[in-house]
């Protein structure tokens, strides 16, 4: 359903050009939940923003295609794309709860999206709003409330309702539970799981939290410094990670269950985004590094069925 080919996005800054996304390839079938995992600065949010075409002004798409059901989103005109944004693809942002308009009631805010994008009448819209709110387990009595009257968890649900209001094919979520408490977090995760079942939702979740990804996703892509270094179905990433970075990352997350073992850490630090090394970006911190790694960037190859890794040491 979604196919990204060789996406390259740069940011122009006063200090130089930052290659935020440097050759990303992805594909996603209908009904899949892809987890785009990585640490801050790896480019995952940029990939999501480019799908919705909401990149900041200083960003330029240097190359690539984003194909939604065969149509290249990047080549569409702004007019054509308006039909896509929110109707076919929508997004929940990091700390979305703060993105709600503080002076509008909840039902008005959700209705607004419906009226603008679907051209519904006010009465039809308000019926749909009630439907949507019950779908996300928000009591109908809360519909007339203002955002500040709701708790964090409820606000996040409202935002999810807004994102799903126009029945999009694809939902993007950037750190959907980072700002929430443990209990609220699980409520939102369960909600997303249910929505996936009921609506056959397709989702991309962007997060650094490998624990919530293990709960929710069917497929995981690990990003490092603008590139995807490993991508496969859920279990192999945790069970038998192949890329040295993935291995270290999985072993650096403490767990409440299972055997208690010493956490691994990754020596060194992220490469300077304006001065990226010639070969593999993980080379300076890799314990399997070889000479070829320093000189040539590895590409993603299918090492096992549906399990792609970009590494020479495999």
């Amino acid at each position: 359903m979604l196919r990204i080919e060789d996406l390259r996005i740069n940011y122009k800054t006063k200090l130089g050009m930052v290659r935020a996304v440097d050759g990303v390839d992805l594909y996603l079938d209908r009904g899949e939940f892809l987890g785009l995992a990585g640490e801050s600065g790896c480019g995952k949010s940029t990939v999501a923003m480019s799908i919705l075409r909401i990149l900041p002004d200083n960003a330029e798409i240097a190359n690539g295609k984003i194909l939604l059901n065969g149509n290249d989103l990047l080549k569409m005109s702004e007019k054509e794309f308006r039909n896509i944004r929110w109707n076919k693809v929508s997004m929940i942002f990091q700390s979305s709860m703060n993105a709600l308009n503080p002076v509008m009631r909840i039902n008005d805010q959700i209705a607004e999206a419906l009226i603008i994008h679907k051209g519904l009448t006010k009465s039809d819209a308000s019926k749909k709003v009630t439907e949507l709110l019950s779908m996300v387990n928000v009591e109908p009595s809360k519909a007339v409330a203002y955002p500040h009257e709701l708790s964090g968890g409820m606000k996040q649900r409202v935002v999810i309702a807004m994102a799903l209001s126009c029945n999009p094919d694809l939902l993007l979520a950037d750190e959907p539970t980072t700002a929430l408490d443990t209990m609220t977090q699980i409520q939102i995760l369960e909600l997303l799981k249910n929505l996936k079942r009921e609506l056959n939702l397709t989702m991309i979740i962007i997060s650094h939290d490998l624990a919530i990804m293990a709960e929710l996703c069917t497929k995981i892509a690990i990003m490092y410094a603008g590139k995807i270094v490993e991508i496969s179905d859920l279990k192999p990433i945790y069970g038998s990670p192949l890329h040295p970075y993935t291995r270290k990352l999985i072993n650096s997350v403490p767990s409440l269950r299972g055997e208690k073992k010493k956490l691994e850490s990754i020596p060194g630090s992220l490469p300077d985004p304006m001065n990226l090394p010639k070969g593999c970006r993980f080379y300076p911190r890799c314990d399997l590094a070889m000479d070829i790694c320093q000189n040539e960037e590895p590409n993603l190859c299918e090492v096992r069925k549906d399990h792609y890794v970009a590494c020479y040491a495999i």
């Binding site: 443990t182 209990m183 977090q185 699980i186 995760l189 939290d209 490998l210 624990a211 919530i212 990804m213 293990a214 709960e215 859920l234 279990k235 945790y238 069970g239 999985i250 997350v253 767990s255 409440l256 269950r257 299972g258």
Partner: peptide, 12 residues
């Protein structure tokens, strides 16, 4: 609380 903490291990 213990029951709802997400676990970074799909095998458990």
């Amino acid at each position: 609380l213990m029951s709802v903490v997400p676990v970074p291990d799909p095998f458990i």
